[in-house]
Amino acid sequence: MSEVFILAQFVGEKIAKTTAELATCGAGIGNVTAIVLAPPGSGSALASQITFGSISKVIVIESADFAHFGVAASAQAIAHVVNEHKPSALLITSSAFGKEVAGCVAILTNSGLITDAVDVSSDLVATQVIFGGSSTVHSRVTHGCAIITLRPNSFSPDAAVGSPEIITANITISDSAKLAEVVSSQPPLAEGRPELTEAQIIVSGGRGTNGDFSAVETFADLLGAAVGASRAATDAGWYPHSHQVGQTGKTVSPQLYVACGISGAIQHRAGMQTSKTVVVINKDPDAPIFELADFGVVGDLFAVLPQASEGVKARKS
């Protein structure tokens, strides 16, 4: 059976849902080992959260350098493990950090790289959806370890539990990976809503909100959804940049994407085009976003959204 390594991801001290997604994807390929990069002293607390039935082994590497030197130090440690164990694949979540780490590990291990896959078959053929959702591509890595980054929300995590074997690896990060230092870090503000890339439902607002996101937020909270925004809305300062969906924001593929007062510029679509179901509220019947809509309402979001919120509330009571 082939060996598959995954990079476990944590949000603060808590395991990220994307780790379970990687594990589920990996289990369809072979025997799964999770790599945990931890600050000194936190290795066992982090590793103990890996209780997925699909993972057989956890390799814990502790070092203060991961937080201090980011991508370069993380890539060096992972490359060390990959060069030693020679797994047939390494799966990492697609994010700014994940993709950069994947790229550096590819160089350090002489391996091919595929980014933003939405599926990986048992024989390591990756599926990507490219050009803003207009084409599906199947590709394979032909040299070294198949390093593949997987888009969040592409897999429904398998619920089976297990207790993987935990081993510790001692790796010293060399000075060549300590050239750029993280002087300070400010994690994104927690707002009690789901993380955008992990959310099953996203309600997004654009210029059409005119700066008033309350209707968008109310509807989002009733659905347990995350709140997204177009660049017009983040540029205007109406919503934080960390909520921007699109080419220069986040790429999301939730079960349901509700676009309110967003015209559907190509850069916005690039970030949400793979959403399973798209619902649109826009007062302009010719807005290009309607091309993507499974259900579209031509109307004023300030009338349609509150009525929809009432409708959801009525169903709940």
């Binding site: 509220i281 809509a293 259900f295 579209g296 509150p306 009525q307």
Partner: peptide, 18 residues
């Protein structure tokens, strides 16, 4: 997809679709 013009019941129709 389905595209409707809000006639005062657009929000309700949206919920029905969901």
């Amino acid at each position: 997809g389905i595209k409707i013009v809000d006639d005062g019941n657009g929000g309700k129709a949206l919920v029905d679709f969901l």
